[in-house]
Design a binder for these strands. Structure first.
Length: 650
RNA sequence: GCCGAUGUAGCUCAGUGGUAGAGCAACUGAUUCGUAAUCAGUAGGUCGUCAGUUCGACUCUGACCCUCGGCUCCA
């Protein structure tokens, strides 16, 4: 056989040769340095026979390519081996430790175990020590092929391995990887020797995980680790985690007195304190004004309805279990609404409509309730009562494209003001094989999906398709916004729906007097007020722009004799609608500055003798670049500037 | 919901069976100060809830509740 090297040279090798053989043929130095290889662009290891005629490259420290995937995977084996030794040292037989899967993941790896006694977090440093020892031992990682029968015998004690092996084809050899006396079923690829694994890893946490992700299966204990090629990268990653903690909206929400939950009121039911309520009110004003300007009509509809309504819409079939249980009143069954659309549909069908009226855009800050699983609740981002910035556009089929464009442009416009720059468009389609989730009407789906694709194309937007992410009633354009921590979150969505108008038999009178069926576009802009607020807190780390800041201006008199002047300025700013306070405590000015900084108040007006005399202030402003000081600023100019900044939401 | 961890003053946390402590915040007094902490004093807790063990429980046991991490990456 032969292989082709990156420089185009051909290398003749004996049949069944591995990448290590190839490296040896090139030179002993390379054979020493090689960590892995690629064959025809795919990552493989040094122990696996190469396909004849493959184009190969060798992975080394200097040419690492995707080596991280390999060493993370090999580290999960080291973890697996270490846990085995840990329990053996405790006196358990080797067979007492059973193993689920142990793949590499983004930034690291995990391994699932079924253990004779649970592993606690404080055991992790000890396990980590054994792992480092295993690396130190410099064990060769050896690949071997075994027949299915023999594999079943070897792992007879481990029901999970037996299950996995049983599902493999009978006639193909089954691959094992061994290091020292530890052997595991694995398709690889792996590093050639434990001694080449990086030491820049850390075991992070343990948790429960169902065998094969199915909650009907037994629960295994999962150990998570992170791993990088260099200590520097690991440190950087750990720093990022610290940063995430620092920005966590639950932490900042507490520090800034924005919201809380009460055990007496119930989990997932947040209470908005005055500060959080201010942010929310500003956001609501902002978005409602935008919508009104775009021809949306705002309504209020009840937060409950007869369960019958959701049976018609189809929500009942799909989300029954995620709704609060029905309340029986007299002869009626009521539910808290999990969605606003059926209510807006009632508004539409309240009276007949002419084609001339369309599009009709019904909007609401609509409160909804969903019975989220208790383990899913988090701060403001996953709650059981939420207010959705929701709208439903009822239009003629010939208006779809214009309405799609208008909806997406409105979203872009709002993102611009909110300072969201990193976002992408996801076209969420149905999974045609999932007959359970999606209503069955190929023609309707094809047509709706084609309309969305056309709309995105016409706007020249880049997008990616995601089958299986559509709503049960139709496909959608989801706008994924990159969070401060680099995770994509779906905030806005535009969904095309031919189904609900049919289910509720919606109509309009066409030009020729015939009855026609309108199309619905479901449009979420700012998501729920809860989620958007959480997102903004993390985005800004609590350092809100002036218009959103719960506390906008702090006036700091240097000594008591400046208090009157401070209050005079405060009253003027307050009259101009700014959220302003005077710190007339007996603290020293430095302490007052510190208090205002810690409270994340964007503007501090410091006033002493000089300022008072000239009706000036000394300004300390928090900017993206850091603290900025401006001395001798005319108060009237500053007031105009603040009002302007607030009004333009700059 | 499931696995694991956690719960002590408003906040951050200490306290390994003998009636609970610190710093910050609060309150009182003194201080009047030029861009991130002035000093002194006072007050503040049915130690998540309920039961049990014990002469005695914040501490040990059990149940429940809240919160946190995970259950999405599949040999």
């Amino acid at each position: 056989m032969h292989v082709t090297l990156p420089d185009g040279k051909q290398l003749d090798l004996p049949d069944g040769a591995t990448a290590l053989d190839a490296a040896k043929a090139i030179g002993p130095r390379l054979a020493q340095d090689a960590l892995a290889a690629t064959a025809n662009g795919e990552l493989t290891d040094l122990m696996t026979p190469l396909p004849d005629g493959a184009r190969i490259t060798l992975v080394t420290k200097k040419n690492p390519g995707d080596a991280a995937a390999l060493f993370r995977h090999s580290l999960s084996h080291a973890l697996s081996m270490a846990v085995g030794e840990y329990y053996e040292a405790k006196g358990f037989p080797k067979e007492a430790v059973k193993r689920g899967v142990g793949p590499y993941i983004e930034n690291g790896f995990y391994q699932d175990f079924d253990l004779p006694e649970p592993l606690r977090e404080e055991d992790l440093p000890e396990i980590e020590k054994i792992m480092r020892d295993i690396i130190g031992r410099g064990l060769d990682i050896v690949r071997s092929d075994v027949g299915k029968q023999k594999a079943l015998e070897q792992f007879g004690y481990d029901p999970y391995k037996v299950e996995l092996i049983s599902e493999l084809p009978d006639d193909e050899p089954i691959t094992f990887y061994a290091q020292g006396d530890y052997v595991d079923l694995c398709r690889g690829p792996h590093f050639p020797n434990t001694g080449k694994l990086p030491q820049a890893f850390k075991l992070m946490s343990t948790s429960g995980a169902y065998w094969r992700g199915n909650e009907k299966n037994p629960i295994l204990q999962r150990v998570y680790g992170v791993a990088f090629a260099t200590q520097k990268e690991l440190d950087e990653y750990l720093r990022l985690l610290e940063e995430a903690k620092r920005r966590d909206h639950r932490r900042i929400g507490k520090e800034m007195d924005l919201f809380f939950t009460s055990e007496v009121i119930g989990p997932g039911l947040p209470l908005w304190l005055p500060g959080g309520a201010t942010i929310r009110r500003e956001l609501e004003r902002f978005v409602v004004d935008k919508e009104l300007a775009q021809g949306y009509q705002h309504v209020y509809t009840p937060i409950m309805a007869k369960s019958e309504l959701y049976k018609i819409s189809g929500h009942w079939d799909h989300y029954n279990e995620d709704m609060f249980p029905v309340m029986k009143m007299d002869e009626e069954e009521l539910v808290l609404r999990p969605m606003n659309c059926p209510h807006h549909i009632q508004i539409y069908s309240h009276k007949p409509h002419s084609y001339r009226e369309l599009p009709i855009k019904i909007a609401e800050l609509g409160m909804m309730h969903r019975y989220e699983q208790s383990g899913q609740l988090t701060g403001l981002s996953r709650v059981r009562e939420m207010t959705l910035n929701d709208a439903h556009i009822f239009c003629r089929p010939d208006q779809i494209q214009a309405e799609l464009r208008a909806a997406i442009e409105l979203i872009q416009d709002c993102y611009n003001v909110l300072g969201f720059t990193g976002f992408s468009y996801r076209l969420s389609l149905r999974d045609p094989n999932d007959t359970e989730k999606y209503f069955q009407d190929d023609e309707m789906w094809n047509s709706a999906e084609a309309q969305l694709r056309e709309g995105l194309g016409k706007m020249g937007l880049e997008f990616y398709e995601s089958p299986g992410d559509a709503a049960f009633y139709g496909p959608k354009v989801d706008i994924q916004v990159r969070s401060a921590l680099g995770k994509d979150e779906t905030l806005s969505t535009v969904q095309l729906d031919f189904l609900l108008p049919q289910k509720f038999e919606l109509e309009y009178v066409a030009e020729d007097g015939s009855r026609q069926r309108p199309v619905m576009i479901h449009r979420g802009l700012l998501s729920t007020m809860e989620r958007m607020t959480a997102f903004l807190i993390e985005q800004t780390a609590g350092n809100f722009p002036l218009w959103l800041a719960p506390r906008q201006v702090a006036i700091i008199p240097i000594a008591d004799r400046h208090n009157d002047y401070a209050w005079e300025l405060r009253n003027e700013l307050h009259a101009a609608g700014l959220r302003v306070e005077v710190d007339d405590s007996s603290n020293r000015m430095q302490a007052k500055v510190r208090e205002a900084e810690l409270s994340r108040i964007p503007f501090m007006l410091i006033v002493g003798d000089k300022e008072q005399e000239a009706r000036e202030v000394s300004l300390r402003e928090r900017t993206a670049e850091g603290t900025q000081e401006r001395k001798g600023v005319k108060f009237d100019d500053l007031k105009a500037e603040l009002v302007k900044r607030r009004d333009t939401r700059a």
